[in-house]
Amino acid sequence: MTLDERKKLILGSIIKDYVETAEPVGSRAVVKKHDLKFSAATVRNEMADLEEMGYLEQPHTSAGRIPSEMGFRYYVDWMMEKEHLDEKEAETLQRILQSGSQEWNELAQHISSFLAQVTNYTSFVIVPAVRLSDFRYLQLVPVDQNKALVLVVTDPGMIMHRKIEVPEDINAEELDQIGRVFTQMLGGKKPGEIKRSTLSQLRDSLRQRRKLIDRILESIDNLLDNSTSERVVVSGALNILNEPEFKDIEKIRRVLAILDEADRLRHILPDSTGDEVDIRIGKENLADDIKEMSLVFSGYKTFGEMGKIGVIGPVRMEYWKAAGSVESVCDIVEDTIKKK
């Protein structure tokens, strides 16, 4: 049902006030705060109409109204203007993605933490299962005394690393030489094509460092195994405690259980997700444990696969900020990946 401009103005004002205060909103407060050009009596009549239409609800203990889930849905679909990341926030995320470790799983943790910070909601990043293509190169980088980083790069530009112990008497030049031998023998091969005979040749080529080679091979094996499975990263889980709707211990327990179990969070989202922001409000969610919450998420493309980035919070959510932030983050992440 289409609302006239006056009803839209009043509904939007009530939603903004309720999201800010978590308290029912009265007609006089709406007129005063938003400097409306009509009387409190007129606003009261319009609020009664909006309640009858299903867009507002009146708690039994209050003369004010709160938005219903239907009211939030109308606002999201027909009235909302997204608030994207501002220039400073966008630059901060770009710096995070372009500096430090370039392993994708670690970047996902940084993205999730950033999104939780700018929205003040719990955020999640689902890293899709990536089908690895050709082995590109391996590098051994000394990082601490008796430790080095095994850095593996595969097409399509996926970078993985793992720290290993190295003998005291080995130097950076020798580590670099060992890395070149690995790259020469494994370069251009798919993970499934790296046969035992090739690994035996590597051991023979580097016989004097047999123990170190075994550690490197074990690291490669673990990295390739771990890189091909879907992974869920959650940040800001305790942000939910800041919301007055979740002061009930049982509610908190159920919500934190969902956030603590990657499989449960993964399964409350649809299998297929496009690159448009999707908003699921309260009872629109299929999982019972999340029907008092809302999800705002979008798909993003990484190395030819589709992952998901989003936030989870109360129905009383700043949808305009959440949707705009998720959309901005997805765009910046995709642009970063394309440049790799």
Rank of each mutant, 00 (worst) to 15 (best):
Met1Trp: 06
Lys7Trp: 06
Ile14Arg: 05
Tyr18Gln: 04
Glu20Thr: 09
Ala22Lys: 11
Leu36Met: 12
Ala40Leu: 01
Ala41Gly: 06
Glu46Gly: 00
Glu46His: 06
Met53Ser: 08
Glu57Phe: 02
Gln58Arg: 11
Gly64Ser: 09
Arg65Gly: 03
Gly71Ala: 05
Tyr74Met: 02
Val76Thr: 04
Glu81Thr: 13
Lys82Arg: 15
Glu103Asp: 07
Glu103Met: 09
Trp104Glu: 03
Leu107Met: 14
Gln109Leu: 09
His110Glu: 15
Leu115Gln: 12
Ala116Lys: 01
Gln117His: 04
Val125Asp: 10
Val130Pro: 01
Ser133Asp: 11
Ser133Trp: 03
Ser133Gly: 11
Pro142Ser: 04
Lys147His: 14
Leu151Phe: 11
Pro156Ile: 00
Met160Ala: 06
Pro167Leu: 07
Ile170Ser: 09
Ile178Arg: 11
Arg180Val: 08
Gln201Ile: 07
Asp204Gly: 09
Ile220Thr: 00
Asn226Lys: 12
Thr228Gln: 15
Leu238Ser: 14
Ile240Phe: 13
Phe246Arg: 12
Asp260Trp: 01
His267Trp: 07
Thr273Phe: 01
Gly274Pro: 03
Glu276Val: 13
Ala287Gln: 04
Glu292Ala: 03
Leu295Val: 02
Lys301His: 12
Met306Pro: 01
Gly310Trp: 08
Ile312Leu: 14
Trp320Met: 08
Gly324Leu: 07
Val326Thr: 14
Val326Arg: 07
Val333Asn: 06
